[in-house]
Simulated assay, not measured.
Amino acid sequence: MPPRELDVRGFYCPLPILRTRALLDTMADGEEVIVYATDPASTIDFRHFCNTTSNELIAHEKREDVFVYHIRRRV
């Protein structure tokens, strides 16, 4: 199954995390989501979110002004 995509560009803390959590809660274990964000604080927020939940931050990168996070759902 291809990864889902979530666009939270233009939103600021805590909305990118809240929307990501809401989507992950609907996903099965092992599914992946790619999140697109523009909030500079999201680099800290997504690391912390994945470190304090069972979800796995597979990769992250910056493409111009967009931060891209690859997250795997873990139960």
Rank of each mutant, 00 (worst) to 15 (best):
R19C: 09
E32H: 09
T43L: 13
L15G: 08
L57A: 08
P3K: 02
R63Y: 12
P16L: 10
L57D: 10
D39V: 09
R4C: 07
E61Q: 13
D25L: 07
D65G: 04
R74P: 06
E31Y: 01
D45N: 13
L23H: 02
T20Q: 01
S42V: 13
L6H: 00
Y12P: 01
I44P: 04
R19D: 09
V68E: 03
F11G: 02
P3G: 01
H60C: 08
L23D: 02
P16F: 12
G30R: 07
H70T: 14
R63T: 10
P40N: 10
S42F: 09
R9W: 09
L6S: 00
E5Y: 03
T52M: 10
D29W: 07
F46L: 08
V33K: 01
H48C: 13
E64P: 11
N51P: 07
K62S: 11
M1P: 04
L15V: 14
Y69G: 00
T38N: 03
D39T: 07
P16A: 10
H60N: 13
S54Y: 05
V35K: 03
A41E: 11
R63H: 09
L6D: 00
R73A: 06
L23K: 03
N51Q: 13
P2M: 11
T52V: 11
A37E: 01
T26S: 09
D45M: 13
S42L: 06
C13F: 15
L18N: 09
L24W: 07
Y36S: 06
R74H: 09
R47E: 15
N51T: 03
T26N: 08
S54Q: 10
R19N: 13
I17Y: 02
T26G: 06
V8S: 05
V35N: 05
E64I: 07
R21S: 11
A37P: 06
E56L: 13
L6I: 02
R73F: 00
Y12F: 15
L15Y: 02
C50I: 01
L6Q: 01
D65A: 15
I34A: 06
L57E: 05
H70A: 14
V8M: 04
V68C: 08
T26K: 15
D29R: 11
F67R: 11
S54H: 11
Y69H: 01
R21T: 15
A41C: 12
P3S: 07
T53G: 07
E32F: 04
T26P: 14
I44D: 05
R74K: 14
R9E: 08
T43N: 04
I34G: 05
P3E: 00
L24Y: 04
V35W: 05
F46Q: 07
R74A: 13
R4S: 13
H48V: 15
F46A: 08
L23V: 00
T38Y: 06
T38V: 07
A41D: 12
N51R: 14
C50Q: 00
R74Q: 12
V66P: 05
F49K: 01
L15H: 03
I71E: 09
G10A: 10
L6Y: 02
L15W: 01
V68H: 01
E31P: 03
T26C: 06
R47H: 12
G10W: 08
N55M: 09
D45W: 02
F49S: 01
I17H: 03
P2V: 08
C13N: 14
A59S: 15
A28S: 14
E61Y: 12
I17S: 06
K62G: 02
I71H: 04
L24G: 02
R47F: 03
T20A: 11
F49H: 00
Y69P: 08
P14W: 04
C50G: 04
E61D: 14
